Amino acid sequence: MVQMTITLNNGVPMPTLGYGVFQTPEAETAAAVERALKTGYRLIDTAAGYMNERGVGEGIRRSGIPREEVFIETKVWISDYGFDQTLHAFEKSSKKLGVDVIDLLILHAPLPTAFGSTLDAYRALEELLRAGKVKAIGVSNFMPDHLDTLVAETNVTPAVNQVEIHPYFQQREVAGTNLKHGVVSQAWSPIGGITVYRGGGSILTDPVLLEIAEAHGKTSAQVMLRWHIQEGRAAIPKSVTPSRIAENFDVFDFDLNAEEVARIDALETGVRGGPEPEDLTLERSGFVIPEA
């Protein structure tokens, strides 16, 4: 099975479908990453704030997959924003991951209450890009005004904006702004797991998705991932269950028709599952990222 890729705005190819390790305990991360890579995933998404970068690096090494075939994406936490601090954040992450070059390094949140630090952090990413220490740079959870300001104030347009997107919360304005700037929209919680985490109902049991899934001999999770791919987005589903890891990757052998895509588009509720980007402040969410 050949995995599709998206070409980023600097020409770097990135796998469309990745494997996420949000909330995966460090002790379980290596085995989960190894399993995902042996299943066929070639993009692993982590973050300094997840506290499991060492496990990601160990899982990659255990898998036996050559380093050049694995696309590693990680994030700088808001506590490490600022030019020098972010340069050091790269050193911490690269050492924990056990790599010299990170494929995609992104800012974890816009930190609008201290956006000057965000801009300085992004300028550090630009420096890392110039130095060849990262292949691409980007952002996460940036709303249209955050992205517009960043693009106006810096020299390198982000390659990726990783945001919450699933059928119940599609962020069309954000996606439109990303498209305007040539930024790839990458969906976290692409099958709506965040809605359950926040105490809501599971998208996986939505009748529309179940009906479409039955028509294709697939699951509702596979239908949602295929929907992301067909709408031009990247997606990073997360599971530590072997059967689910395999199921989430098995989405390249069918197509949704236009009517099915429209029905999924119509599931929009406008209700965010994750935190409001404006609420992520140093006072509320700042914590120290340990040294390597």
Rank of each mutant, 00 (worst) to 15 (best):
M1W: 12
M4I: 12
L8N: 12
N9D: 11
G11L: 11
P15F: 01
V21G: 09
F22I: 08
F22H: 15
Q23N: 13
T24E: 04
E28V: 04
V33S: 06
R35G: 10
A36Q: 04
A36W: 04
T39Q: 14
R42T: 13
A47L: 06
A48V: 04
G49I: 11
G49E: 04
G55D: 04
G57T: 09
E58Y: 03
G59P: 06
I60M: 14
R61A: 15
S63I: 07
G64C: 10
E69Q: 15
V70T: 08
I72H: 03
I72A: 03
I72S: 08
I72N: 03
E73M: 15
S79R: 12
G82V: 08
F83A: 05
F83R: 14
Q85L: 13
T86C: 02
E91S: 15
E91Y: 09
L97N: 01
G98F: 09
D100C: 00
V101I: 13
L105N: 03
L111D: 02
T113R: 12
A114M: 11
A114W: 02
F115W: 08
G116W: 02
D120A: 15
Y122N: 10
R123H: 10
L125G: 07
E126R: 06
E126N: 11
E127A: 15
L128F: 08
A131R: 15
G132K: 02
A136Q: 06
G138E: 10
L147M: 12
L150P: 01
E153Q: 15
E153S: 15
E153N: 05
T154Q: 02
P158S: 09
P158E: 07
A159D: 06
A159M: 13
V160F: 05
V163P: 00
I165S: 07
I165N: 11
F169D: 00
Q170F: 03
R172V: 15
A175Y: 00
G176P: 03
L179W: 13
Q186S: 15
P190V: 01
I194F: 04
V196P: 00
Y197R: 14
G200Q: 12
S202V: 04
L204A: 14
L209W: 06
I212F: 01
I212G: 02
G217C: 07
K218Q: 10
L225D: 02
R226K: 14
E231S: 12
I236P: 01
V240C: 02
I245F: 00
I245P: 00
E247T: 01
E247F: 01
N248V: 00
N248E: 02
D250G: 00
N257I: 09
A258L: 09
E260T: 05
E260H: 08
V261F: 05
D265F: 05
T269W: 09
R272K: 12
R272I: 05
G273Q: 04
E283G: 08
R284S: 15
S285K: 13
G286W: 10
F287E: 13
I289T: 14
P290N: 11
E291I: 08
